[in-house]
């Protein structure tokens, strides 16, 4: 149990998907203009990450490995993720219009979000068990959402700041991300990863 908690903390803080692994940077800069959209994107990523972990793990261990088709990993994973996201979108639209309103519109964007395929490749590469995979997905998603919310909070305040002309736009966001990454570097002292 303690080991799983460590795994969660390690995935969420020490090896944060955005600030340490550089996975899923596009929405990090694209949809962090306000807190609400950042939260929705975080919710959508959490949802898809969990389902991806749940699907990819059996696919690798019960289909690709026994058949010796390890080299088809990339092709198989991207296809399964694309199908999965499409099904999830249809399912959510039918089942819960409110939920669809909240983050359904972000779902199509997620197929090409490298955080999802990255998660799939990481859990298989690390040789996790199914329980570890789920905890890792949960931790990564929590860390992702946390970083998205922090970025959105800072950028909302930035609306009133007088940014030097050269840094306006993407540059200032990257600088903020750099400072956040510096702070997150301190979590390395937790010694859990």
């Amino acid at each position: 149990m303690g080991e799983l908690i460590m795994l969660f903390v390690g995935a969420a803080l020490v090896n944060n998907f955005l600030l340490s692994r550089f996975l899923g940077i596009c929405p990090f800069l694209g949809v962090t203009r306000e807190l609400k959209s950042a939260l929705s994107m975080g919710g959508a990523v959490t949802f898809v990450m969990l389902v991806t972990g749940l699907v990819v793990w059996p696919l690798q261990h019960y289909v690709l490995d026994p058949l010796g088709l390890g080299f088809l990993q990339t092709v198989a994973f991207i296809l399964i993720i694309a199908v999965l996201v499409q099904l999830l979108e249809m399912f959510i639209r039918k089942m819960s219009p409110a939920l669809y309103e909240a983050f359904g519109i972000y779902l199509p964007l997620i197929t090409t979000n490298c955080a999802i395929l990255g998660l799939a490749l990481l859990v298989v590469g690390e040789g996790f068990t199914l329980a570890q995979t789920l905890i890792f997905a949960l931790g990564s998603a929590a860390g992702y959402t946390l970083a998205m919310l922090m970025m959105a909070g800072i950028r909302q305040e930035m609306e009133f700041a007088d940014v030097p002309q050269a840094f306006q736009g993407t540059a200032i966001s990257l600088l903020i991300a750099g400072l956040m990454a510096l702070a997150f570097l301190g979590f390395g002292g937790l010694n859990v990863a």
Binding site: F22, A166, G169, L174, G178, A181, L185
Partner: peptide
Amino acid sequence: LAPGAFVTMAAVLAALN
């Protein structure tokens, strides 16, 4: 390290601006 990547990219984008 990770922060260096963000800061370098920010500096390059600002210089190009």
